[in-house]
Amino acid sequence: MKRMMKLVLASASPRRKELLAQIGITPFIEPSTIVEKVTSTVPEEVVLELSSQKAQDVAQHQEAGTIVIGADTVVALDGQILLKPVSHEDAYRMLSMLQGRNHQVYTGVTMVSCGQRENKVKSFVEKTEVTVYPMSEEEIKAYAFSEEPMDKAGAYGIQGNYAAFVKGITGDYNNVVGLPVGRVYQEMKWMLEQEGNND
């Protein structure tokens, strides 16, 4: 990055914070408190809507020179969105659906560059294909009734014990963890270059 700026992550996700730290970015953490509204059932549109709502909400009270990052991740199987499980039984249901199959992970990212007069906004969606090995009844039950799936979309964490069942991925691994940091960095760099050209 050619100039220092304040970077705010509009999310309380420890995984997103860790991913940004991995590429040398230490964000301020300011989770959005907005009541999320979704008008679509299409995974790409849902994550874009939610990431935009989060970023715009937090950007409202930032000073100029701040970049706010909002993100939302969903798991989709046959176009159906699998959210975070509400119970271990719900986690069991999702994991039973995913085992032995391919599914998609979508992360929507919205970056708001706060200016003196107006904000500049950049949004994108990253998609990763994940293939899961067949799992036995015992394996599904053991994982579903552990604590690991409980705060994760699709009821699994690729960076945890579930790694034992991941056959392969096509796309960005970090996207499945919760944030496609490579693309975030590149898009942010582009935003700053555009602003520099307009100075």
Rank of each mutant, 00 (worst) to 15 (best):
F28H: 09
E193N: 11
K2D: 04
L98D: 03
M5P: 01
L7W: 08
D172S: 14
F165C: 09
T33E: 13
V35A: 15
E18T: 12
K122T: 13
S123Y: 10
K122A: 13
E89W: 09
V8L: 05
E193S: 13
T39A: 09
V181Y: 14
N102V: 12
P31D: 09
V132P: 09
V75W: 02
A10C: 12
E129R: 12
K152P: 11
Q80W: 09
I29H: 00
P149L: 07
P180T: 00
S40A: 10
P43E: 08
L98G: 06
E139R: 00
I25P: 01
D57M: 02
P149R: 06
N174Q: 07
V47W: 03
D151Q: 09
Y92A: 15
K167C: 05
A21R: 05
Q80T: 10
A59F: 04
K54C: 06
I140Q: 04
C114T: 11
E49A: 08
A163Y: 03
W190Y: 15
V74R: 07
E148R: 00
M188G: 12
G70V: 00
V38Q: 10
G65I: 01
L82Y: 13
I81P: 10
K141F: 14
V132H: 05
A76W: 04
G100C: 00
M135I: 00
T170R: 14
A12P: 10
M94A: 06
N197H: 14
Q116G: 07
G24D: 11
A153S: 13
G115I: 08
A155P: 11
V38Y: 07
A55S: 08
Y173M: 01
A153W: 10
V74N: 01
E45S: 14
Q62G: 00
Q186I: 10
A10S: 07
M188E: 06
G154V: 05
Q186C: 12
T128E: 02
P31Y: 10
L19R: 02
G157L: 09
A155R: 12
N119I: 08
L7K: 12
V74M: 03
N175C: 06
A153I: 11
K120Q: 13
T41S: 15
G182C: 07
K2L: 09
L20E: 12
T170N: 13
I29T: 02
E45V: 12
V68N: 01
Y143D: 11
R3A: 13
T131F: 00
G154Y: 02
K122W: 12
T41M: 08
T33M: 09
R93H: 14
F165N: 10
F28M: 11
Q99G: 07
L179G: 01
E137H: 14
T128L: 03
Y92W: 14
V109E: 10
Y173L: 00
H88N: 15
V132G: 05
E129N: 13
S136R: 11
E36W: 05
I34S: 04
I169S: 06
E138I: 06
E30R: 11
P149I: 03
